[in-house]
Every structure is written in structure tokens, then in C-alpha cells.
Amino acid sequence: MPHATAEAPVVQAHGLGVALGGQHILSGVDLSVASGEVLALLGANGSGKSTLVRALLGVVPTTTGTVHLFGAPLGPSAPWSRIGYVPQRLPAAAGVPSTALEVVTSGLLHGRTLRLPHGARRRALDALAEVDLSDRAHQRVQDMSGGQQQRVLIARALVRRPDLLVLDEPTSGIDIPTQATFVDTVARLRDAGTTIVVILHELGPFAPLIDRAVVLRHGRVVHDGAPPRPRSDHADDHHDHTHAHPDPEPPPTGPTLSVEVGP
């Protein structure tokens, strides 16, 4: 990694274990992310990708191991202003309406910064402009489409100008043109030197950006290195990515009677 020589790793986890409700979700995970790297976290549903990211950011408590962010131990003293997190989706709408501007503005608070800095409104509007939502700043997020809500969440993470951006399946349930704009945004951030950790179900449109991939299976790291190449037919344009249940049996029809009429 070109930038990694002098600085501490952006993310450094040792022997990380997480148990939720008595069940081991992660065990013995070691992970180090260097500055400027674009890392994809891959794995099947339930493999622990989201839990790993949430443990790295202190959302869920860890049972074993240590996490350092920019060289500081996870906790109140970690440099939270340098970290931006984009969750998978907005929490289910509560009763009180909130505008995109209000949601993005709340992203300016972190760590022990509990009051807004000067120029907060300007910065929030700039972040909304970055995701092409300037004209919807005063609209309720509850009324927005899934793709627009996702863009609001990205703006909320970008408003602090983070050096580490963590995205949890940013393209799930998003149509293809919007996915492309997300990839453009991430590419721009990477070019500006931002370290990126992104959870993906499959590399998809992010494939050209990914430097390194970590694959989880049953809460353990099973691959750490070059992005895995999908099975050849998987990469094929005509491959159907939905893995639905097998087609149901056709409904039984009554006995068929064929009548052959002779000449």
C-alpha cells in the first residue's frame, strides 16, 4: 500500500469475538486496513459481515479482542470525526417527521461534540449537493424512495469529511442507475485518499474499485487477499443473480383425454 508505511493502520482488530444472545457471531477475527485501501467484506447472509463492521465501530459490544481506529483504542477517545458510517437503511419511520437536512446535520455530531459547529447548515447542504439531493433538503426523509434515503445516509456520513468510510451493502435494493452514482461517489472519495470498507453481497459494479477482499464464513475469516473472481458463469451478463426457490410444481391438472379422429 503506497500510503501505509508511516501511519498506524486505519482499522486494526485482533482476535475479535462477538456473541449476541449467547450465540457466537464472530470469533478470532484479525483485520487490518491500511490508509487509502478499498476493502470489500464478502460473505453469505449470516456470515457476520454486518456484525464485524458494527463491532469495529462500537455499535455492538465485543466479547474478546481489541479494536484500534487510527491507532486509538475504540472508545470515547477514538477520532470519531474521521469516521463515517453508512448503515444499510434508515430505521423504520417514527412518528415525528424529519427533513433530509436535519438528518444530515445530525451527522456533524460525534464523540464528545454534542453541539453543532459554526456553518453546520452550509456543510450539510454541501453534503446533500454531493449526492445530488440539493432540491430535496427540506423534504421529509420518510416520504423519499429507498434510493434517495440511501443517498441521505451517505450524505450524513460524508458531512464530517471522514478519512474512513464504512458502508453496509450500499447497493442492496437500489436500481442500477443509482448504484452507478454510488460507485462514482466512492471512486471520487478513494481518489481523494479516503479509506473505504464496504460490505457487499457480490462485487457487482464496485469490482473495479476493490483492492482487497475479506471473505467471512460462519464468523471467521476464510479469505483475505485479492478480490475473488466469481465463478465464470457468475460474471456472465446473462447470469440470473436471483437464487429463488425452485419453481413450484405446476398445479396438477385433471386426467387428459385425447381423442384422435381418424380420417
Partner: peptide, 27 residues
């Protein structure tokens, strides 16, 4: 009113507030 934005952040999206290092429990 003084901590309106911080209390909003915690009430609106607790997971994000934790991932921002905010003192969620205190708030």
C-alpha cells in the same frame, strides 16, 4: 433545546449515534 441535535441524533438512529461515538447511554 440546548442539546436538541444530539438528542435528535440518538432518538432518530441509535445505531448511527453509537457508530459516531456519541455517549448514547448518557443521552
Amino acid at each position: 433545546l440546548g442539546l436538541r441535535t444530539a438528542l435528535f441524533a440518538v432518538s432518530h438512529d441509535e445505531e448511527f449515534a453509537r457508530a459516531s461515538g456519541l455517549p448514547v447511554r448518557v443521552l
